[in-house]
Design a protein around this nucleic acid. Structure first.
Length: 386
RNA sequence: GCAGGAUUAACUCAAUUGGUAGAGUGUCUGACUGUAAAUCAGAAAGCUAGAGGUUCGAGCCCUCUAUCCUGUU
């Protein structure tokens, strides 16, 4: 067993210890939650999205506000996703929504139908205008079931776009007179689907880009989904990709994931995570419940046994999920999770939350989101102490 | 009392000239992995108020009964 990775990274809005989890505040908010709620849930860094904020409220407003931190009055580290994933998923689901060329992506706003163009350069400019602490290259994320040939060409496009992103990044640093302390960290994204050789090619290509442009990437992201069609975690490709990435660089597992997948990724050398699961599942009435005393078993040298095969049917997960909408909770007057100290578990019963969900009242979604985030944050604390 | 109208799933209502019933809501259960997601999917659920009749065949037509609504003495 390798040593567990822990790094302290410094951003202009504070230091972060890895591993850490970032909730998705896609449109500059975690749905239903105030900054106060986030603080109490233990949330620190979050992810906002270039694509969504570009469309609404538009960069004009964000710039006038003085950046996204001021706009949302959140003064902890923020990472912006490039919007690549959103634009591509939009177009892959419905080709009429846009067109992808080597030079640019043209797409229609699903809300207004308005036509927009995004280039790698433009994505980086927007992310500088957002004023985030960490930003991500505009990449080409194909669905995993595309042919190897198509994924290979997505890898090449991702590499060539990464170069354009990095050149633009340097330009922006110069133009805005940013220093080592005030500049945002920049992450490249590794594509290659389920093919180890393509993942390798992509990382090597990205490293070359850094060399050519004269700046090392601060980190590398794992692009595309990390689970197969059946939802099974793709151990091999996550391990191989992590191993290709330089030791000292940050490894960002984009979109990961379930608690057990985060643990697996951490074990394989990934440092950063973001996912919609805790908040979306919360809004849909699914609550993460810790087993027993919420003791993620810790040992010094060995990775905890309970974390080894969380998906194995013989082995009980260290948590369970309840669907609070289920009829059996109608008259259950116990707390959602008796080992949790969040606002929900300290003040309300399962029956009451069930009632809120049956009413469709936003209070239920808020309390459930807070609880699930707290669960994730407690998990990350445990991992940070390994 | 009389005259009209109604009675179909738990609720609100559909069902072309008579061809053995559908939807929305609710209920039950799933799903959600760089958020087009307070979303999506599936299931259960009806002796069509009751009793007769006409017909090859009735939720639809006829008779009676019950309950309700609206008028009117």
């Amino acid at each position: 067993m390798d040593k567990f990775r822990h790094q302290i990274i410094t951003t202009k809005n504070g230091k972060l210890k890895t591993p850490f989890f970032m909730p998705d505040a896609t449109r500059a908010l975690v749905k239903f939650l105030s900054n106060d709620d986030l603080e109490k849930a233990g949330v620190v860094p979050m992810v906002v999205n270039t694509y969504h904020l570009f469309l609404q409220p538009t960069m004009e407003t964000i710039k006038k506000a003085g950046g996204v931190h001021k706009f949302m009055n959140y003064h902890k580290p923020l990472l912006s996703d490039s919007g690549g994933y959103q634009v591509f998923s939009l177009i892959h689901k419905n080709p009429q929504m846009g067109r992808i060329t080597d030079n640019e992506v043209v797409f229609r706003s699903p809300a207004s139908g308005e036509k927009h163009t995004i280039t790698p350069e433009k994505s980086i400019q927007i992310q500088f205008d957002l004023g985030v602490d960490m930003l991500v290259c505009f990449d080409d994320p194909p669905p995993n079931n595309y042919s190897k040939e198509r994924i290979s060409s997505a890898v090449e496009r991702t590499i060539s776009w990464a170069k354009r992103c990095l050149i633009e990044y340097n330009k922006q640093i110069k133009k805005r007179k940013l220093t080592a302390k005030t500049r945002p960290l920049i992450f490249a994204v590794v594509q290659g689907g389920k093919y180890v050789d393509l993942r390798k090619r992509c990382v090597e290509g990205l490293i070359d880009v850094g060399r050519e442009v004269g700046r090392d990437w601060d980190g590398y992201g794992f692009g595309a989904r990390h689970i197969d069609e059946k939802g099974v975690f793709m151990d091999k490709i996550l391990k191989a990709t992590a191993d290709f990435i330089p030791e000292k660089s940050l490894r960002f597992a984009l979109g990961v994931g379930t608690p057990e997948d985060i643990i697996k990724c951490y074990k394989l050398g990934w440092d950063m995570f973001d996912c919609v699961i805790p908040t979306r599942e919360g809004r849909h009435g699914r609550l993460f419940i810790s087993n027993k005393q919420f003791e993620f078993p810790i040992s010094n040298s060995q990775f905890p046994n309970k974390f080894k095969n969380p998906n194995s049917k013989n082995q009980k997960l260290f948590y369970e999920i309840v669907n609070i909408r289920n009829g059996k909770f109608k008259n259950d007057f116990g707390p959602v999770d008796k080992n949790c100290d969040c606002e929900l578990c300290q003040n309300y019963t399962r029956a009451y939350l069930n009632h809120l969900f049956r009413l469709g009242d936003p209070l239920g979604m808020r309390l459930a989101s807070i609880h699930n985030l707290k669960f994730y944050m407690r998990l990350m604390e445990e991992l940070q102490e390994l």
